[in-house]
Design a protein around this nucleic acid. Sequence first.
DNA 1: TCCTATACATAAAT
DNA 2: ATTTATGTATAGGA
Lengths: 219, 219
Amino acid sequence: MSEDVGRRRMQQQEEEEEDESLKAAAAAVEEGGGKRKRKRGRVELRRIEDRTSRQVRFSKRRSGLFKKAFELSVLCDAEVALVVFSPAGRLYEFVSSDTSVEQIFGRCKDIPDMVIDDLNIAARDSRGYCNIQLDLNEQSAPESVSELNSFAQMALELDVKEMSIAELTRFEEIVTEVLAAVKSIRIMKVAELTQTEARLKRDPQKKGDNWSGQESGKE
Amino acid sequence: MSEDVGRRRMQQQEEEEEDESLKAAAAAVEEGGGKRKRKRGRVELRRIEDRTSRQVRFSKRRSGLFKKAFELSVLCDAEVALVVFSPAGRLYEFVSSDTSVEQIFGRCKDIPDMVIDDLNIAARDSRGYCNIQLDLNEQSAPESVSELNSFAQMALELDVKEMSIAELTRFEEIVTEVLAAVKSIRIMKVAELTQTEARLKRDPQKKGDNWSGQESGKE
DNA sequence: TCCTATACATAAAT
DNA sequence: ATTTATGTATAGGA
């Protein structure tokens, strides 16, 4: 989807500065006033720095998002659960049917023989099966990965369901730290490799596509 | 010629037609016949009857919804959790991660900017070294979470720096899954709390306006 | 799939 | 809050 943007932009001939000026001038003749130049740049996919602006956009986009979620649930008869925390920490939620959020999430539970239950809600494939354990066991990994299995095993054994919110928060912090560290180290290693071998060419256009990796399930 | 003028004229026509279309649609609904499909968009806010069409709609709208969710999380620095069950019962989910590239690279100052750029990693806030170990050790957690400390301890003991890139990648996958899961559960619990406090019931009717009643805000 | 026309969302200006 | 200009999402068709 994001990849389409480039192409679409070409088709729709995004106006450059000069182009815009010309049109503005033409419009001025038509309208009798020349103040019609409001080029707002492309929306950059990164955190909005200005606090106020961020807040405003959050409201609007949140509205839009909830509306879309609602429409999807009605038009396509889908179950949708959406939870959003504003940067200020306020909670907004939407659930399509009259089931609660917990019920929707709870649907993830009716998987047979799964020890880990809720823990890996996020790790199910499109058929709804938990696959983290299978992945871990079946992934014939190098020896040193057994360490990783232990790690994961421990994560799985923690009784996450029973934790208080505070504990969960703390746990999340820890895991976030771990993840950040691992990413850092991996990237560094890749960077080392890259440096040693050759210079890579700059490739700035795949920027907005990372999110798709966090979606699970396929058609 | 002035494209601007052309565009404006076109828009006006659209608006007039839109009006007619509404009436036509309304009439069609009443009589169950005489459906003129001159207008594409403007979809009735009700379940799509045709199965194939509904499936296609679902795919497209789901994509859009996930994209929006992602954008909201990035642009506005919000936490977003989105779970969708297709009518066929398949699960799709998105959980925003605070672990942005910027955060990761805020910890790594050793990588030359060019390399980072080459890897398509833009932001760096070079302030510290990779400091996971320090972070983890310094965080003196509440006693009730000794389990979590064990977890962290184990993470510490993994000799992450000696891993191959492949191993790191795998490890990263695991931790990402764990993080997403924990996040889901935490958000779910908070949502439960909120619901207990104030149960906001929603009443889907006809227009896309009523969804707003399904949002609940809280501190 | 891909494309196009059109409705819709929304950033900026009022 | 309202308006306007412009980008985006997406219905329908190829």
